[in-house]
Design a protein around this nucleic acid. Structure first.
Lengths: 116, 116
DNA sequence: TCAATGCATTGATGTCCGTCAATATACCAG
DNA sequence: CTGGTATATTGACGGACATCAATGCATTGA
């Protein structure tokens, strides 16, 4: 899988944001939403999002996450892949480093699915 | 455990809603938030919340959940306990039935933890 | 070309979770 | 008290997940 290929699967505007409270949800919508919240259901991943949100440049490389989170580098990569599959972050390779940034729009979608 | 005892552990207003995006989160806050999102990270539980939100009286008994969700009664009870422990629903016994209702304030807390 | 660095993937391990059958508990009607 | 109904709990099973060591791949610099 090439680096330039990795973005095509990320998002489809229609399939992301049913509302929990607006109407009875069918199993398919519920399953999709559950995957989104599952990405948020881990303290390491929440802290990754938090660090990304707080970064000056809006992005950080993996090497800058390992030490503050006190997890191994493979573990951090694992969590970044889950966040990336959920559309919450995007990674871009620049020379030796991969820079990850937050997708605030995707986060807002999940948030709005909880609208009253 | 008696029915009247079950409410004491439910909530403490201070411990529920750190913000993901406002500042770097410590592990304790992240852990607490992750527990909240984990309660939302299952399609059956999301559909329970959805059914509760859509109910006329604002509450439904367990017996009204089993058939639409196509899960066994113990499974539904299991999910209701998880939602209850997370403070997202509350159950009240009235005669033979236990009526569950949505805690919209708790849901709003989780939602606001994703504020930009 | 070679060694070093940054990141991803694989494989293994222990733990947690969703599910249901069986059982227990609570309540009510008779 | 007895039987029936509604819900909760227990125990067991299979699958998913978090974690890390080892390894692979890509990039850079010498």
């Amino acid at each position: 899988m090439s680096a330039t290929r990795r973005m095509i699967e990320v998002r489809d505007a229609d399939q992301c944001c049913p509302s929990v409270l607006a109407a009875p949800m069918d199993g398919v919508d519920a399953q999709r939403l559950a995957v989104g919240f599952a990405a948020l259901a881990d303290p390491v991943r929440l802290r990754i999002l938090s660090i990304l949100a707080d970064s000056r440049a809006g992005e950080v490389c993996v090497c800058d996450l390992v030490s503050p989170l006190e997890k191994s580098q493979p573990t951090i990569s694992h969590h970044l892949k889950i966040l990336s599959d959920a559309g919450l972050v995007h990674g871009e390779r620049r020379s030796k480093w991969v820079w990850y940034s937050l997708d605030r729009a995707r986060l807002a979608q999940l948030q709005s699915s909880l609208d009253a």
